[in-house]
Computed example of a mutant assay.
Amino acid sequence: MRYQIELFFTALGFFTRLPVPAWVPWSPERLNHAARYFPLIGWVIGAIGAASYLAFAWILPPTLAVILSMAVTIRATGAFHEDGWADACDGLGGGWDKAQVLMIMKDSRIGSYGTVGLVLMLLAKAVALIEIGIEDDLSVVLALAVAHPLSRLASTSLIHLLPYVREDETSKSKPLARRLTPAELLIATIFGLLPLALLHPLEALAAVLAVTAVTLWSARLFIRRLGGYTGDLLGATQQASELACYLGILIAWNFI
């Protein structure tokens, strides 16, 4: 049990800016096995986002509460996944071949594709959550609680299904470049799907279908352009899947 707790804190320290206990050891091998808890980190970030939204909505209009809660979650993760989305937009948008795409994504500077993509992604997520909040504040809380774990499961599935294509040993995501064992994949799946029980069955179904569609499309794109995934592409998948989850919920409302 202690080892599992250590793996959880290893994942928490890698995927967020949140402090972890000093007694937790770190090694590439532990990070390798910590991928099973990637969706569980979504529980933490979803809870932070939900609590922030409720606190802000108590004293501010819902629109501002959504935007500020997004800022809090971005701060908690260090914009880890947003950075991946921007890099992926730059690389896939501006690169012609595999080598050029990888080179562009490695560049710490943001380009036109990344800037436009990041602005549109943040805007789309904000508007989607504002629309969800038209029902009531609880709807936003539930959407956040579901979208963050489910979107991180989408990224974890790519770690399991696709090969890692960056050969640079200094890459931050290199320790994660290993297929999950069946037991690890089961753990990730449970933590990713369990929050769906909070939603209406049609909302849950629509969210799963939307996230699955985005994940499969992303996998096809990554294989076609690069032959596999990189850390930036995992972050991009998380962002796209999170938005897909919100959109799935909104679509389901037309049939409830």
Rank of each mutant, 00 (worst) to 15 (best):
E82G: 09
A177Q: 00
W96P: 00
I45N: 08
R2Q: 13
R179D: 04
L176E: 06
T77H: 01
Y164W: 06
G111D: 01
K125I: 05
R17C: 05
A204N: 12
A206G: 05
I5C: 12
V214C: 02
A244F: 02
L102G: 04
R17N: 06
T115G: 15
A57K: 06
Y164S: 02
G46T: 04
V146L: 08
G114Q: 06
E135F: 13
S108A: 09
G231Q: 02
I5M: 10
L138S: 11
L205R: 15
L40R: 07
L161M: 12
M121N: 14
H160A: 01
H148W: 03
T115S: 15
G93V: 01
Q238Y: 08
D232L: 03
L194K: 04
E169V: 13
L150N: 09
L40A: 15
D232R: 04
C89G: 05
M70C: 07
L68V: 08
M105P: 02
I130Q: 12
L196P: 00
Q239L: 08
I251A: 14
I249R: 02
Q238S: 10
W96H: 15
D136Y: 08
S27V: 04
I5E: 06
L123Y: 12
F255W: 13
E167P: 04
T237V: 12
R75L: 15
M70W: 10
F191P: 02
K125H: 14
A204Y: 09
E135D: 14
